[in-house]
């Protein structure tokens, strides 16, 4: 199976409270770039779908990672190559000239050329929290979608996978879908649990370590030689106009400082007589 994984770098999500507003722009200066966590999960998922879990050095199929952004995003792509992806594509464009819709339309052109069986993306990029690119690209391609995947099992014969059974994490439970390939799947947090992903190569009962795999030093060196090509956004999308226009930003009002209560009795009294919520 051939899988395309769109992958974004974001300003360090664990320090998102350090963003600043300057004029009409949001500034993330001083924050380190990190891969969007959901995209790291998508890469891990793609690797698990294209291997026998007991022999992870041998790739059964191909994993292609693609990122939209300036030259620096190549570091994020190389990191994905080091964990096992085969090839990378960088679409040269700056973040202010992008919105989810343009990313999806340009991805469509890449998909038409690369012809993957599956587009596997994160459910959301944790900077803008838009949660839209997977769904948009599914519609633009006319493919079925399975968003918020908490587990995936591939069906069919090795090398001839035909469908995926996906458990989607939704409000109030789980929705189970079967999508016939080619399809678009977006992944949720629990996809990197030990038994969440099962390929046709992996034995029943096999368990992965929890979380994503780390690259060995050797693999990091080898990744420098893996193919990474650059594309121009203008050649992928005829129309590069954005559909969303950001006018300005503001920081939210801080919550006013609270109090520490000395014991349960004081808590109960305050909730009743001061906050009046009990």
């Amino acid at each position: 199976m051939k899988i395309l994984v769109p992958l974004k770098r974001v300003a360090d999500p664990d320090n998102a409270n350090k963003v600043k507003v300057a004029g009409t722009k949001l500034e993330t200066t001083g924050l380190e770039w990190k891969p969007n966590p959901f995209d790291e999960y998508a890469v891990e998922t793609a690797l698990r779908l294209t291997e026998n879990g007991a022999a992870t050095k041998q790739r059964q199929g191909e994993v292609v990672v693609v990122s939209f952004g300036p030259k620096e995003v190549e570091a994020t792509l190389r990191a994905a190559l080091a964990t096992g992806a085969d090839r990378a594509i960088r679409v040269d464009v700056t973040d202010d000239k992008l919105d989810g819709d343009l990313v999806a339309r340009a991805l469509k052109a890449i998909v038409e050329k690369e012809k993957p069986d599956l587009v596997l993306c994160g459910k959301q990029a944790v900077d803008g929290d838009s949660n839209q690119v997977g769904q948009l690209i599914a519609e633009y391609l006319g493919w079925p979608q399975a968003t918020f995947a908490g587990s995936i099992k591939s069906e069919g014969a090795p090398g001839k996978e035909t469908a995926l059974v996906v458990h989607r994490e939704v409000d109030g439970g789980t929705i189970n879908l079967k999508v016939t390939l080619p399809a678009v799947v977006s992944v949720d947090l629990r996809i990197v649990a030990p038994t969440s992903v099962k390929s046709v190569y992996t034995a029943d009962g096999f368990k992965y370590p929890d979380g994503v795999r780390f690259a060995a030093l050797m693999a990091i060196m080898a990744a420098k030689k893996k193919p990474l090509v650059e594309e121009k956004i203008e050649t992928l999308a005829a129309d590069t106009a954005l559909k969303i226009e950001y006018l300005g930003f503001e920081l939210p009002a801080a919550r006013k400082a609270g109090v520490k209560v000395k014991d349960v009795a004081e808590l109960v009294t305050r909730l009743k007589s001061e906050a009046k919520v009990l």
Partner: peptide, 20 residues
């Protein structure tokens, strides 16, 4: 219509417009 939406885990709010 001008929309307000949280970004960066609610650590900033954007105002935005759709061009369509």
């Amino acid at each position: 219509l001008v929309y307000r939406r949280p970004v960066y885990a609610g650590n900033a709010y954007a105002s935005c417009r759709l061009t369509t």
